[in-house]
């Protein structure tokens, strides 16, 4: 029962505002997702310019969050939405908070590109990149699920978050081993670890968005415990 599948409100402006809200959140999602993919690309291509551009985009994401929140407050105060309309507003409010964090984390990844460029690439750069592609695909799919109102797609991502956790755990072990064996690996290794941790968190935010999409569409919380892989002691 997505808003787009329903009859319009008697007060047309209300329907238009809800549709605009969903479109705004989707646009913010697109921008946050582009920050993640471009940060990864900047790391892979050792592209400092692209990394700087990603960092610049974070301010845009923050501004979008503020604008969307204002619209939601206005909708709540003036329209007093209930049932599914209320869920549209609450879902938007929660998703923009996750997307804002995704933007911050992508910016943090981009910030490390310059430091990484100071040392030679290792096989582990590739592993981080592969993990990044998994996370980016999860984010992409939950945002698609949000835009199309498909709860099942959101749930599919929600169930796969342990893929990300496994990637992270494997990377964590490999990076610790590499740093122990080769002192020159410590600095790039530390940065790669942070990047991996940031990616893991972006994955968590994608999972949050999946839960919100499920709630938005069905009105039910996703309460069952998600399958979880073992976690490293220090995470």
């Amino acid at each position: 029962m997505n808003s787009t599948h329903n009859a319009p409100h008697i007060v047309k402006a209300f329907s238009e505002e809800l549709e605009q809200l969903t479109a705004d959140v989707a646009a913010m999602g697109g921008l946050a997702e582009s920050m993640v993919s471009d940060a990864l690309q900047a790391a892979a291509n050792r592209d400092g310019e692209l990394a700087d551009e990603v960092r610049f985009r974070d301010a845009q994401v923050d501004q979008m969050q503020r604008d969307i929140e204002k619209k939601i407050i206005r909708l709540l105060a003036l329209r007093q939405p209930i049932a599914q309309d209320l869920r549209v507003c609450i879902a938007a409010l929660k998703i923009v908070a996750d997307l804002e964090r995704v933007g911050d984390l992508a910016k943090s990844i981009a910030r490390r590109v310059h430091t990484l460029n100071a040392s030679d690439p290792t096989a582990l750069n590739g592993a981080v990149e592969r993990m990044g592609r998994v996370v980016q695909s999860h984010l992409h799919q939950v945002l698609d699920a949000y835009a199309t109102g498909e709860a099942s797609r959101a749930v599919a991502v929600w169930e796969r978050d342990d893929d990300v956790d496994e990637h992270y755990n494997a990377l964590f072990r490999d990076l610790v081993t590499a740093m122990r064996e080769d002192g020159s690996m410590i600095e790039p290794g530390a940065h790669l670890l942070f990047i991996a941790k940031n990616l893991e968190r972006i994955g968590d935010h994608a999972t949050n968005v999946a839960e919100v999409v499920h709630y938005l569409v069905t009105g039910q919380e996703l309460t069952a415990d998600r399958p979880r892989g073992p976690r490293p002691e220090t995470s």
């Binding site: 029962m1 329903n6 007060v11």
Partner: peptide, 19 residues
Amino acid sequence: IFTNPLDQRTQDYITGRFG
């Protein structure tokens, strides 16, 4: 009824969509 109505007609009415 007000957070998660089961029937589309209930949903349409309480959210102001009824003609």
